[in-house]
Design a protein around this nucleic acid. Structure first.
Lengths: 194, 194
DNA sequence: TGTACATCAGTGAACGCGCGTTCACTGATGTAC
DNA sequence: TGTACATCAGTGAACGCGCGTTCACTGATGTAC
């Protein structure tokens, strides 16, 4: 049964949103087309009217994830301490479906289609730029870019490890987070040369 | 057909080794029982004489992975710089099947059985202890443990991100690695208080 | 503005395939005499 | 030491199930007159 143009667009958004959160929660391999369609309130047949295949949806979902993450970081308005506290806060450990896609599936990206890899990396580089901009001013040069590259990688790794620990040893998860906050804030404050 | 006791033990080892490398390469979900058995030179039926199910093998494979990683770090003999150069070297980006299990599947661990989670975390904590021991001497206390907790999380995150970048942008992968080496070595050298 | 109909978004059942797991059977091992 | 046989590791085909994908059909939309 045909639906309104508005409803059509709405359905597409619902598919991407459902895919985004289910992929972050269960990984690309673990998020099935049937589950995604059910979450979006559609049947599987309808899905292939919107996307050529699962991989095309995955690329779109990844783009959506990275855009949302960027918005979250931009909301802290260039305050590096706020970025760290937000990213490495206890609530981000539990909120996997709506949290950082990099902490959710960095290791899985190399097994996805080139489109997903490219989108994922562009998102990473954008976050690096935002973090670099939030660092204390230094003379222009590549040094603080390299610093931001490390800071973001370390943030992602710390959150991912805290999540792995949370199920078995919540107190270890909290110690991983608080240690990361401490050392990352120090690294953000340190004066550095060109 | 029955086989020698020696061959029986050999077959079990082959299953665990095949599982270890295939799980690191493709993830827990992506490494199938049939693939693992084929790599071990056995049929699927034989598998269930050795293990109750796939999850039991996964736990054993994870233990094996963590043991191998520990051996690699111990081989550097308490030299933190050597640990960093070995872990964050270009060859570790490509050698996924025989590399660090944490960089390979940290995000997937929370979806595995408690046994796998526990084994994974024990391996992580052991690596943290080894890294802590490799850091320059400080007065006894928990500060350098927290430092090691962060260092290992950052190492894992940096390697995982470099691997995600390697397929699309190899030069970015190398920059992630070299930045991580630079800042992590600094963090290892810095004097720190109790 | 009102009616007639072509368009097309969505339905739901079916497809082939690979998954983890089971089981009746095989035949070499290794023990008992 | 040599033979007879119970044990049991491994085989290979089959199981049910869920996967991604396809397709004939439905019926509301929105256009043409």
């Amino acid at each position: 049964l045909k639906v309104t143009k508005a409803k059509l667009a709405e359905n597409r958004v619902a598919l991407v949103e459902a895919a985004r959160s289910l992929i972050q929660e269960r990984g690309f391999a673990g998020a099935g087309v049937a589950d995604i369609c059910k979450a979006a309130g559609l049947t599987e047949g309808a899905f292939y009217g919107h996307f050529a295949n699962k991989a095309a949806l995955a690329a779109e979902a990844c783009r959506n994830s990275q855009t949302r993450l960027r918005a979250l970081i931009e909301a802290t308005d260039n305050d590096f301490g706020a970025v760290i506290d937000g990213y490495l806060g206890a609530s981000h450990v539990d909120d996997i479906a709506d949290g950082c896609p990099m902490a959710a599936y960095t290791a899985e990206v190399r097994r996805q289609e080139p489109d997903v890899q490219k989108t994922f990396l562009e998102g990473f580089e954008e976050v690096v730029r935002l973090v670099q901009a939030a660092l204390p001013r230094t003379r222009p040069g590549s040094a603080s870019h390299r610093r931001a590259l490390f800071l973001v990688s370390a943030m992602v790794g710390s959150l991912a490890m805290a999540r792995a620990a949370a199920g078995t040893t919540p107190e270890l998860a909290e110690e991983i987070l608080s240690s990361a906050r401490e050392f990352l804030k120090d690294l953000g404050r340190l004066k550095h040369s060109a």
